[in-house]
C-alpha cells in the first residue's frame, strides 16, 4: 500500500471533495469516538474493516462531474482494493483478530455513515481520508 501515492492523490482533490461536504457538525471517522482512541491490538481489524468500508460503501458513490477528480478517486480505490486483499490474507492466517471493542468501534462508524444520505455520507467519508491516513501512520 503506497501511502505516499494515496496521500498525493488525495491532496490533489482534498479541497474539491471537502468543499462538497457542507456539514461541519458531523463526522464519519472522528466524532463522537475518535479513531485515535483505538487500542493498538485492534488496529489491524479496524484497518481491514475500514478498507472494506471505503471499497464497498464510499468510492462507488463518489462520482463527480470532474474527470480529473474521478481519476484520482479511481486510483485511490485501486490502492485500497490491493490493501484490502492483503489484509484479508492476514485475517485468514488469524493475524488480524477482531475483538469486541473494534467491532463496536466500527459499528459507530457505520452508524455515522447511515445517519446521512448515501451521497453525502460517501463524499464526507472520502473527505475524511486524511483522518484515516493520519491514524494509520501514527506509530
Amino acid at each position: 500500500l503506497s501511502m505516499t501515492e494515496i496521500r498525493a492523490g488525495f491532496s490533489a482533490i482534498k479541497a474539491n471533495i471537502q468543499s462538497r461536504d457542507p456539514i461541519r457538525s458531523r463526522s464519519i471517522l472522528s466524532h463522537p469516538h475518535s479513531l485515535h482512541k483505538v487500542k493498538s491490538s485492534d488496529r489491524c481489524c479496524i484497518t481491514h474493516h475500514l478498507f472494506t468500508f471505503y471499497v464497498d460503501k464510499v468510492f462507488k458513490h463518489c462520482r463527480t462531474e470532474d474527470s480529473f477528480v474521478n481519476r484520482k478517486i479511481s486510483s485511490i480505490a485501486n490502492s485500497f482494493l490491493g490493501a484490502r486483499r492483503r489484509l484479508g490474507q492476514c485475517r485468514e492466517q488469524n493475524n488480524c483478530v477482531c475483538g469486541e471493542e473494534s467491532t463496536e468501534k466500527f459499528k459507530q462508524i457505520l452508524a455515522n455513515y447511515e445517519g446521512l444520505n448515501v451521497t453525502s455520507a460517501a463524499m464526507k467519508s472520502l473527505g475524511e481520508l486524511d483522518i484515516l491516513l493520519d491514524w494509520m501512520e501514527k506509530s
Binding site: I23, R24, S25, R26, S27, S30, H31
Partner: peptide, 8 residues
C-alpha cells in the same frame, strides 16, 4: 472557530 465533527 469550530472543531470538525463537532461543528459548534
Amino acid at each position: 472557530y469550530a472543531v470538525y465533527g463537532v461543528g459548534k
